[in-house]
Every structure is written in C-alpha cells, then in structure tokens.
C-alpha cells in the first residue's frame, strides 16, 4: 500500500509546511503593518504581496499531486474535486459580481476567493470520498 500512497504523502509533506510558512508570513507582515513602523513605497507593496507566495505554492503543490499520483482513480477524484471547487467559487463570485454591478451590494474582497475555493474544494473532496468510499 505504501507505493500507492507515496504521492499523497509527498503532497501532505509539501502542503502543511507551506501553510505553516503562510501563517508565519501573515503574522509577520500584519505585525509590520499594524505597528508604528508602517512600511511605505515599493517595499510596502512587496511586503503586502509576500503572503500570496505560499498560497501560490499551495496551488503548485495541488498541481504536482495531479502530475505525480500514479493511482489513476485517485488522480481522477482529485481533479474532479478541484474542478467542482473551482466551479462553485467561480459561480458564486461571478453572481456576486453582477450583484455588485446592478444591485450595488458590498464589494467582495478578492482575498476571500482562495479561502472560498479551499472550502468548496474540501467539501467536494469529502462528497467524492463518500461517493467512492
């Protein structure tokens, strides 16, 4: 069974340290912006973008799992979960976008798109794991 789960183990070993790096960077950047030494100029932009790097890393890690997973059924299940997650979050955000245009509802902070995708993806993964238990 170990050969069958090697790609998944690698995925988890990449995923959790990257998320830990994200938390550390967010805390560090927030501390810098919240404290009196508020950064300014191009440095401030670079610092503000810094937390996005581990998030982009997580997206790459999700893609690497698709490439490295040898178990074709598990790969199909992972791709389906990703597509369902993307479909759900794109549907919600495009609907909200039109509500913003025509109904002037509160604008959605783009930051929430990735956490929203993760929730939708997690939900889809759970449903697929139950369907194909």
């Amino acid at each position: 069974m170990s050969a069958a789960k090697a790609a998944y183990r690698r995925y988890l070993w990449r995923f959790f340290p990257t998320m830990l790096a994200y938390v550390v960077i967010v805390l560090g950047v927030s501390w810098l912006f919240d404290n009196h030494q508020e950064p300014a100029g191009p440095i401030a932009y670079m610092l503000a973008i810094l937390p996005a790097i581990p998030i982009i890393g997580v997206i790459v890690i999700m893609g690497l799992y698709v490439v490295e997973e040898k178990d074709e059924f598990m790969r199909m299940r992972h791709v389906m979960a990703l597509l369902i997650g993307m479909g759900l979050i794109l549907s919600l955000t495009v609907a909200w976008g039109f509500l913003e245009i025509y109904m002037h509802v509160a604008p959605l902070n783009a930051f929430w798109i990735f956490p929203g995708f993760c929730m939708a993806w997690g939900f889809a993964s759970g449903v697929l794991a139950w369907v194909y238990r």
């Binding site: 069958a4 789960k5 040898k70 178990d71 074709e72 059924f73 598990m74 194909y132 238990r133």
Partner: peptide, 10 residues
Amino acid sequence: EVSRQSVNAI
C-alpha cells in the same frame, strides 16, 4: 499498487 478505493470503484 493502487488504493483500496480504486479497487472498489472498479
């Protein structure tokens, strides 16, 4: 060399 879920699905 696949998961048990794969065997079940097939």
